[in-house]
Amino acid sequence: MEIVYSISAFGILFSMMLALIRAAQGPTVFDRILAVNMFGTMTVLFIGVVGYLTNRPDFLDIALVYALMNFIAIIAVLRYRDFSVDPAEEAENHEHS
């Protein structure tokens, strides 16, 4: 079983990396939001896997919290981000930085 858990763990890590790249690069707000959301999901999965990997299934409690928090964070982004800014401009801005 451990092998399976290990492979899935590394797989998740790989997907996390991809999400990370997107979150870092952008270039639009939506890219980032999506990346973060995805990253949160990955984290939940990852903790679950690690929990089983280390024989500590009670870690699932934590995974639950992560899922919740991820949801709330995304809501916050949606709620407080002013989307009236032109995505293109956003991209341009990013070039400069």
């Binding site: 999400a19 979150a23 870092a24 952008g26 980032r32 973060v36 990253f39 984290t43 982004v77």
Partner: peptide, 19 residues
Amino acid sequence: RNLFAAVMLSGIFSLISAC
């Protein structure tokens, strides 16, 4: 220089550290 990106990324940062 993009603070929104920074906020997003710091969220990810704290998720990773939690892991």
